[in-house]
């Protein structure tokens, strides 16, 4: 829940730079080894998620009453049937982790899409219609930012009831203010520019101004924030899952799996270690990607 960092004036000030040609972006991006690694990991995860039904050796929900808490294959007592062991009620860890990738990617993408769309619209509105509308929107965002984000998410989930959908909604609401602020700041700096005035003089309508003229010029900071937002979303949803408020069992969401396995921490390391590792690797990959994108989009930090 640390997305605030990116709102340092440095990034926002760059909002006005002209978009780079995609090819140049790709060259810049490719030079960054970390970013490429992140991208590769993400592509692998996406492939795994898409083909989970064929790749996973077992069903993620079917229990095996003869194999509770079997260790991974390389440990004594492990078997090749369950390469990464089984959980407390005899479900294959590997299959659950693979199916979990599906959920985590879904969470990341859905949450960010939701809050980017809603945040951009609110930010555009606030930036265009100054006055009462702006004050109302920005005050509400300030209030949301003042409350610790996890606490707010917990309260929202408590209201809506625990579950994957509600957890995603809660995280999207918590992330919203960042997008609103970025968009508004970008809009305000754009509106005063000549091309907007020119468009206005040419008789462009307000909606056209908002979406056709100004929005495309605010996309750079939004893209960076969104790619990093995916990692925040995955982390937050996992934290909710860990507190028992996110996805509900038997869904193989990694945070939920971790929560379910916490009592076995002293007895079966694999049920605790593996889901956390999966979260870490995924989040790290998205952060590497986001960093690479930012560097590529931000000429000031370029070598």
């Amino acid at each position: 829940m640390t997305a605030e960092v990116l709102e340092s004036p440095v990034v926002v000030a760059q909002a006005g730079t002209a978009p780079h040609p995609l090819l140049e972006l790709w060259f810049d991006f490719r030079a960054n080894r970390g970013a490429v690694t992140g991208l590769v990991v993400i592509v692998v995860l996406i492939l795994l998620a898409l083909s989970a039904d064929f790749v996973a050796p077992h069903s993620p929900v079917i229990t095996d009453n003869t194999a509770f808490l079997k260790p991974p294959v390389w440990q004594q007592g492990g078997s090749i049937a369950y390469p990464l062991g089984t959980d407390a009620i005899g479900r294959d860890m590997l299959s659950r982790l693979i199916h979990g990738a599906r959920l985590s990617l879904l969470i990341g993408i859905a949450v960010v899409t939701l809050s980017v769309v809603a945040g951009t619209i609110l930010g555009l509105v606030a930036g265009f219609y100054r006055g009462v509308v702006e004050i109302a929107i920005m005050r509400l965002m300030d209030i949301t930012l003042t409350l610790p984000s996890l606490l707010l998410a917990i309260v929202i989930v408590a209201i809506l009831g625990p579950g994957l959908m509600n957890a995603m909604l809660a995280v999207a609401i918590v992330l919203l203010p960042h997008y609103v602020r970025i968009t508004r700041a970008a809009v305000i700096s754009e509106v005063s520019k000549d091309y907007v005035t020119a468009a206005k003089v040419a008789g462009a309508g307000r909606l056209r101004l908002m979406f056709k003229e100004v929005l495309p010029n605010c996309t750079a900071p939004l893209i960076v924030q969104a790619s990093l937002g995916i990692s925040t979303a995955i982390l937050d949803a996992a934290a909710l899952g860990f507190l028992g408020l996110g996805a509900q069992p038997p869904l193989p969401e990694w945070g939920t799996m971790l929560a379910d396995a916490r009592e076995f921490v002293l007895r079966a390391w694999w049920v605790v270690t593996l889901p956390g590792l999966a979260i870490l690797v995924t989040v790290l990959a998205f952060n590497l990607l986001g960093d690479g994108l930012r560097d590529a989009l931000d000429p000031k930090l370029k070598r």
């Binding site: 970390g34 990692s231 982390l235 971790l258 002293l266 605790v272 956390g276 870490l280 952060n287």
Partner: peptide, 24 residues
Amino acid sequence: GISLTGYSMPIFWWALLLILLFSV
């Protein structure tokens, strides 16, 4: 590298790992 890893860390899991290693 380390700081990006730290930034990506699910701290609830990190805590369990540290307890397992240092305390247990």
